[in-house]
């Protein structure tokens, strides 16, 4: 299954790669009759490393950065979903659990995708420090690596409202993390740009949902599904939103546009209409408070 999928992906790279792949496919066929079954996965992996497009170190860095973001998000949702129980009450309320389960599943899918791709490219996938997951089964849950209270700053595990504030900020920044890297990936070797684009829209859907949950719960900042100005859910999370109030897009100040009925649009609307990228170092600085080093 997995091998077929890899071959299919490689085939989409163009005729040049296709030639390479088809000879390799023949090679796999003839080899597989002779080589012990146990040795197959290793052999196949080593063959396919060579058929992926050449990836620069900066691209590999970007992919490992995505992986780090996804590890943190998956662990955040998984630990929150696991907090509490039916008799004492769960941290995440029943009505919202299907939504958060969906988010958790999608973060896990992202994590696995990047980890497998980095591995296939012959680079070393990022692993959280103090990793207590399972490298053999691939279980990425590592509670020893993360503290989402940030050393007691947030009531993440005991207050649903606090969990939502942290989750919104982490999720909004994950959108910004992808937006920061996409313009660096335009060569799109091995479809890395396409994959990053497709994931960024899903992160944005997650963020929109969490913001709507908070809005309906009557959060004091009355959040919208989009980011108005640089408003954080709570002051300690302000740094996650710095730069979100930009209104200059490709040299044009979009806050000067005329809108409905010939009336000037609001500055807030101008900031909402565009998400803003965040560079890798700033993303990781914001996330650092949740990582046990």
């Amino acid at each position: 299954m997995k091998l077929n999928k890899i071959i299919k992906e490689l085939e989409q790279q163009g005729p040049e790669v296709y030639e390479k792949v088809s000879t390799r496919r023949d090679a796999v066929k003839s080899f597989s009759k002779k080589v012990a079954v146990a040795a197959l996965p290793l052999m196949v992996a080593s063959m396919f490393k060579k058929t992926y497009g050449k990836t620069t170190d900066s691209v590999t860095d970007a992919l490992n950065f995505f992986l780090e973001v996804e590890y943190l998000q998956y662990n955040m949702y998984h630990s929150a979903m696991a907090t509490g129980n039916i008799s004492t009450g769960t941290l995440i309320v029943a009505a919202d659990r299907p939504g958060f389960q969906m988010i958790e599943n999608e973060q896990l899918a992202h994590l696995n995708f990047w980890r497998n791709l980095i591995d296939a490219l012959g680079a070393t996938p990022y692993t959280p420090s103090r990793f207590s997951g399972d490298a053999v089964t691939g279980n990425p849950y590592s509670p020893t690596s993360y503290d989402f209270t940030a050393g007691g700053k947030y009531d993440f595990y005991t207050s649903y409202a606090s969990f939502l504030e942290v989750a919104q900020s982490v999720e909004d920044v994950s959108v910004r993390a992808y937006l920061g890297q996409i313009p660096n990936l335009v060569a799109n070797t091995n479809d890395v740009m396409t994959s990053a684009i497709k994931m960024s829209s899903v992160e944005a859907r997650h963020a929109s949902f969490i913001r709507l949950v908070r809005r309906f719960a009557g959060a004091i900042d009355n959040p919208k599904p989009w980011i108005a100005n640089n408003m954080p859910p709570t002051i300690p999370l302000q740094s996650f939103y710095l730069g979100e109030d930009n209104t200059i897009q490709k040299g044009i100040d979009v806050s000067q546009f005329t809108g409905y009925n010939g009336v000037a649009i609001t500055r807030a609307a101008a900031t909402e209409a565009f998400d803003e990228p965040m560079d890798k170092a700033t993303v990781l600085n914001n996330y650092a408070q949740f990582i046990i080093s």
Partner: peptide, 15 residues
């Protein structure tokens, strides 16, 4: 860069 920034906002709308 600018088109990707719009794309994620559209995803927020869709959600």
């Amino acid at each position: 860069a600018p088109i990707s920034k719009i794309m994620t906002v559209q995803a927020r709308h869709a959600a």
